[in-house]
Amino acid sequence: MKKLFKSIGILILSAGIWYGCEAPAEEKGSSGDENLTAGQSAVQDEDSKPNVVQIAVGSADHTTLVTAVKAAELVDVLSNVGPFTVFAPVNEAFDKLPAGTVENLLKPDQKTALADILQYHVYVGVIRPNMIKDGMSLNQVSGGNVTLAKSGDEITINGARVLGSVEASNGIVYIIDQVLLPK
């Protein structure tokens, strides 16, 4: 639990200091040229509750995940109405992978493999903490299954610990301490 509070503390600190990627979204005028090709993530809406992507982007603990989601071109997908349950590994989780794994997956020719791994972290549907049952299996977007375990307040997914959860406008994000690798 201590770790959970720490992680969320970081999340709070990091919230509000993220400024988007290199090219900020342009103001759309009546010419409309810019919104011909932008996807759903480019919708300008600073009032609605953040979606799962925006939550990850707002967290200093999830910079690796966000980089990966962008590289796999899943930003628009996860900005969809969903709803999604996203298991979001923290940066340290990626650091635990064998050296070079992340760098390799970020290469353009590895996009499919990367997308497969990331989609293994996403379920279509909202599974709130109170709905989780010990031994519950979820069929993920990638097509693979994950298994949830619950003991008291402790929740794990394929053995990865859930550190906390954040409600999103289009689902829920569970912060986890390991990267889930498709079996």
Partner: peptide, 20 residues
């Protein structure tokens, strides 16, 4: 705990223009 998390979501900035 949940209320602090809610605060996170409110403070989260908008993600824009990242789509290639």
């Amino acid at each position: 705990m949940l209320t602090t998390i809610a605060a996170v979501t409110l403070g989260t900035l908008f993600l824009g223009g990242c789509k290639p």
